[in-house]
């Protein structure tokens, strides 16, 4: 049997998470680079229809890996069930999106198999016969190329946005779909999850905002938030923040941008005193224009900024508010 790559896509309530297509794109690229075959798997209670949806893409085979115990999600069921499935198929490489759900079970799954996960990767490189996976380190200040030093299967998770989901190739004809039932006995699942819920109705839908002024730790004190609010107001935009600001209660949680908050793509994203930790970047890197003000010239936010100001936001913002007001009054 030739070596193979297995992409485990993510679904919830019978719908594929769109990040699944990104991971499939990664799988297709890696299959082309290595000459290995590419299979996909959907995991859930009854997911054959989703496996058919995936089978339309360029894959060799699409699996529906099913057990009644996969619903609702628990790390015990997913790790135990996927271990059975992966051991039976023995792929070289197992790819998954780096979602909250995957990070919850994939280290357990790999450990149960005596294997390792290179997590939260943003790309890969093939150097000779060696596969390297690139991941951000030190909150994005540095990058590392990481290789596997142990036997396969090798587990890799890719960061949201690392590959283009809309670039996933469609197959010449639909790939065969195979349903695999895994046995999960009583007592395997120790966690009892309740229904998912939202804390409060989100008062603001930042995804609709054209202009967002966002503050990070560099704002220093709660009272300084006012300055950023004035700038947002002058620009006709919304105020938002990185996680630490909301954790401190300086702005409500519904103003938070990032992996645990909202994902936005406004015309203008003005980042004040935001260093650009990965968890924040994933929530705003799709913005059309990014302006960043930060006193640390090495802040990762500058990597993705269109316009960068290395300096103290408290010096820059007051005259900026005045200039914006003047420009608006003049237009």
């Amino acid at each position: 049997m030739p070596d193979s790559i297995l992409v485990v896509v993510e679904q919830r309530d019978g719908k594929l998470n769109r990040v699944s297509w990104e991971t499939l794109t990664a799988g297709q690229a890696l299959a082309a680079a290595t000459g290995w075959t590419l299979d996909a798997a959907v995991v859930g209670k009854e997911v054959a229809n989703l496996a058919h949806e995936v089978a339309a893409k360029k894959v060799q085979r699409s699996y529906a890996v099913e057990s009644p115990r996969f619903e609702p999600y628990t790390p015990d069921a997913f790790a135990f069930g996927l271990k059975q499935f992966i051991e039976s198929r023995a792929p070289q490489l197992v790819l998954m999106p780096h979602t909250y759900q995957v990070r919850d079970f994939v280290p357990k799954l790999a450990t149960a198999m005596g294997r390792t996960v290179i997590s939260d990767c943003v790309g890969y490189k093939k150097e000779g016969d060696k596969l390297l996976f690139t991941r951000q380190m030190f909150q994005g200040k540095l990058a590392a190329d990481v290789s596997f030093a142990g036997p396969p299967p090798w587990f890799v998770t890719f960061q949201n946005g690392a590959f283009r989901g809309d670039k996933v190739e469609t197959g010449a004809s639909a790939a065969p779909v195979e349903t695999v039932k895994v046995e999960l006995g009583d007592g395997v699942v120790r966690e009892k999850p309740q229904a998912m819920f939202k804390e409060a109705k989100q008062a603001v839908d930042l995804t609709q905002a054209e202009i967002i002024v966002s503050v990070g730790r560099g704002i220093k004190e709660q009272k300084n938030i006012e300055l950023a609010k004035q700038l947002a107001e002058a620009l006709g935009g919304e105020i938002a923040a990185s996680r630490p600001i909301c954790d401190s209660g300086w702005l409500p949680m519904d103003r938070q941008i990032g992996s645990s908050g909202q994902t936005v793509a406004p015309k203008l994203y003005l980042a004040l005193g935001i260093s650009g930790a990965i968890q924040h970047i994933v929530g705003m890197k799709g913005s059309r224009t990014i302006i960043a003000v930060n006193k640390d010239s090495e802040a990762p936010i500058f990597e993705i900024a269109d316009y960068a100001v290395v300096g103290n936001l408290f010096d820059v913002v007051p005259p900026l508010i005045e200039e914006v007001k003047k420009a608006k009054a003049g237009s």
């Binding site: 190329d145 142990g150 900024a305 960068a308």
Partner: peptide, 17 residues
Amino acid sequence: LQKIERLYVPQKTKNTE
């Protein structure tokens, strides 16, 4: 089971002014 082959300053993907 995994090895950091090299660590480096990431290449910019954007032309930042």
